[in-house]
Amino acid sequence: MNQATPMIEVTNLDKFYGAFHALKNIDLTVHQGEKVVICGPSGSGKSTLIRCFNGLEWHNSGRLVIDGIEVYDGAKEIRELRQEVGMVFQQFNLFPHLTVLENLTIGPMKVRGISKAQAEETARNYLERVHIPEQADKYPAQLSGGQQQRVAIARSLCMETRIMLFDEPTSALDPEMINEVLDVMVELADTGMTMVVVTHEMGFARKVADTMVFMEAGQIVEVSPPEQFFTNPSSERCRLFLDQILAH
């Protein structure tokens, strides 16, 4: 893996919702194969930031370059970019009217123009990788939350993505289902995928992250390797936050 190739480059990025300054002067670089975990209190702009990475939100100023493509509202390449950048949502957002298999094949077939047979073969491969090959013909509502989220991960992977974004992927899950999703994410990390994960699962972060990012009030307060982040964070605010979420 080539650590020198930048996949996501954020420079001086600002984002407003009306008068509200949601993201303030963000600078961040994510290299190929790097795993970045973003944490911080709610409302700090973590989700907004990663939603900018695949054009679900648009920044107002600054530069955002992903895999060599400049991202801005109206960019022609945005749809190509979204095929490269997978997104896993807190609420799964599976397509409820389609079976699991159809959820996985609709993107490759309709967007990439891949044949049905080939798309299904790929889909079954990825279902195998998220450990639910037997659920292919069920509808999302028939699956548990953990299974649904693993289908959602597989759906993104079926697009042969190069970057995966996770927006609090385990926050909507019952506690006993969190690990099955995190396990899949750890396995995915081991394949060398570039990952940006917004999460409060610090056990996962310790295990997987190359870089920890702490955000507060729309700003990046701390960027450091996990050893330093968890033992000796440079900012007082970050230390307080960790104390709170690691207290029990």
């Binding site: 695949n54 749809r79 993107g107 993104s156 697009m159």
Partner: peptide, 18 residues
């Protein structure tokens, strides 16, 4: 239809008409 469906479709690169 919940907005999450729009976002999921966008995130796999679908056009508005798709």
């Amino acid at each position: 239809v919940p907005t999450g469906q729009w976002e999921a479709a966008k995130s796999i690169g679908m056009s508005p008409s798709q």
